[in-house]
Design a protein around this nucleic acid. Structure first.
Lengths: 115, 115
DNA sequence: AACTAGTGCTTGCAATTGCTAGCACTAGTT
DNA sequence: AACTAGTGCTAGCAATTGCAAGCACTAGTT
């Protein structure tokens, strides 16, 4: 058990939701989960089931496995980074790769990041 | 909404347990799950949580993901690539992901020559 | 026959999940 | 000021999860 999941799923979900500029009620509508429950989940008051996590992941465009991992339901999933995925791609030209990378880095440099 | 899509993870568990020549009570002891509950799970009477499935998978030496898939908590694995990397990313917002994906797909649909 | 020890299954219940309804606050409108 | 529309959070409850205790049956021992 080498699960370094310091932040619980809740704060992670809240983080992702706010980054996507979504209100709790809007996310509730998208997921089909009630808004009070979402609120409690984000604050770590309640522990959501896998089904709930799955619908949240879908709505937030996060991998289900990622959320499961954050919740301690799975461990050891390695997500491929965008940078390496771009550089190893075989369908793109060099200039296209450079363009994609520029856009990507501009996206993530606009916000504060953590990891 | 309440699709009773129980693709019987139960019978699968029973199958694996019997293949390992384990009794319900023995498996209960190994997993920490009560034996009546295991019985109900195997017969499809009850729907176990992800945590229960996880401990069962561990005891039966099955991949947790496999059991999750059987239970409808996960669906098949996607091939890794840029699309996966983008959707997996946690630093981008939904709209940023959509933008990146649009650019990427427009790149590869123009079929230019590769480096 | 009676006693163990093994199997799986049923009953009843405490704890938890996830909902509906409603509260409290803020900001923009009229 | 009152009315809306937005935000997140609280209260209370039906339904479900998962367990402890016990039932029913079989097979091997004495």
């Amino acid at each position: 058990m080498k699960t370094p999941q310091l932040p619980d799923v809740g704060s992670f979900i809240r983080e992702q939701r706010e980054r996507s500029a979504l209100s709790i009620r809007k996310l509730a509508e998208m997921t089909g989960v009630s808004n009070p429950y979402l609120s409690q989940i984000e604050r770590g008051v309640r522990r959501p089931s896998a089904e709930i996590l799955r619908s949240i992941a879908e709505a937030l465009a996060i991998r289900t496995e990622t959320l499961y991992e954050r919740a301690g339901l799975l461990d050891g999933y390695e997500a491929p980074g965008i940078s390496t995925a771009i550089s190893t791609d075989t369908k793109l030209t060099i200039s296209q790769k450079q363009a994609l990378m520029e856009i990507y880095t501009s996206f993530i440099s606009n916000d504060q990041e953590d990891s």
